[in-house]
């Protein structure tokens, strides 16, 4: 059984079909890079995986739990699936520590004192333990994004989703965030990331999934798929982003 099973998923907004018959299996420890043009449905797919969006057909199963089963406790499920967004979305009124400990304390009943230790550990893994008492507006974009990653990690998820988490950052800050991902890949974390960083996808992606017009158009091992695209659409896309 795969950690994440996406089977024939279709997602529509009223008359607009955004995902068509999408299927994807992700094994524990895999790093999947999703690439594709703007509007191809990459973000929507991630949002369906943790139940932020409903699907109209198909199934999404995470570690044996079906996301779209009405009987599923979405809160429990989301505690096991971290997601980090392009815009960081830290809570501006809370300190870094509290940003990280909010969910563990209110959903898992972890005591304040233990929670601070948890926050510290999560911050160590993103190299920001000295910022534990800072506020989001005192951090650079790259630091905010690393805190957002730490916030997800503190929930000890089985699966991490990343949606273009470096797109709002300049190259230098992008580098520091990618290094955190690199570090995470060594711990064996399963990751699905939507990215425009082809270099990163090639080096660390175990697999690349190319989405086009709401479908999984082509997928395969990172180096092969990016090096020798089989479809014209992927070739066009790669030419556009690489040149």
């Amino acid at each position: 059984m795969s950690l994440l099973e996406i089977e024939n998923v279709t997602k529509t907004y009223d008359a607009l079909t955004v995902l068509t018959d999408v299927s994807l299996l992700v094994e524990t420890g895999e790093i999947i890079a999703i690439i594709g043009r703007s509007g191809s449905g990459k973000s929507t797919l991630l949002r369906c995986i943790n139940g932020l969006e409903s699907i109209q057909a198909g199934r999404i199963v995470i570690d044996g739990v079906e996301v779209n089963d009405p009987g599923t406790d979405l809160r429990k499920l989301r505690q096991q699936v971290g997601i980090v967004f392009q815009g960081f979305n830290l809570f501006p009124h809370l300190s870094v520590c509290r940003n990280i400990t909010l969910a563990p304390t209110v959903t898992k009943g972890i005591a304040e004192a233990d929670a601070r230790e948890l926050a510290r550990e999560a911050l160590v893994s993103v190299g920001l333990e000295d910022k534990i008492d800072a506020y989001p507006d005192q951090l650079s974009g790259g630091q905010q994004q690393r805190v957002a990653i730490a916030r997800s990690l503190a929930m000890q998820p089985k699966l991490m989703l990343f949606d273009e988490i470096t797109s709002a950052l300049d190259p230098e800050l992008t580098g520091e965030v990618l290094r955190v991902l690199e570090e995470m890949s060594r711990t064996g974390m399963t990751m699905v990331l939507v990215t425009h960083e082809m270099g990163f996808a090639r080096r660390f992606g175990s697999r690349v999934v190319f989405m086009h017009e709401g479908r999984v158009w082509e997928q395969g091992p990172a180096a092969d798929t990016l090096g020798k695209p089989k479809t014209k659409e992927l070739e066009t896309f790669l030419n556009a982003v690489l040149h």
């Binding site: 979305n89 809570f91 909010l102 209110v106």
Partner: peptide, 26 residues
């Protein structure tokens, strides 16, 4: 911002928890 509310839900908070900690407090 909607995005912050969504971040709250994505962390596994319930509706009332999101209201209290992510919406009402700020």
């Amino acid at each position: 911002p909607r995005a912050q509310i969504e971040a709250g839900f994505a962390l596994g908070l319930s509706g009332p928890q999101v209201f209290r900690y992510v919406i009402l407090s700020p």
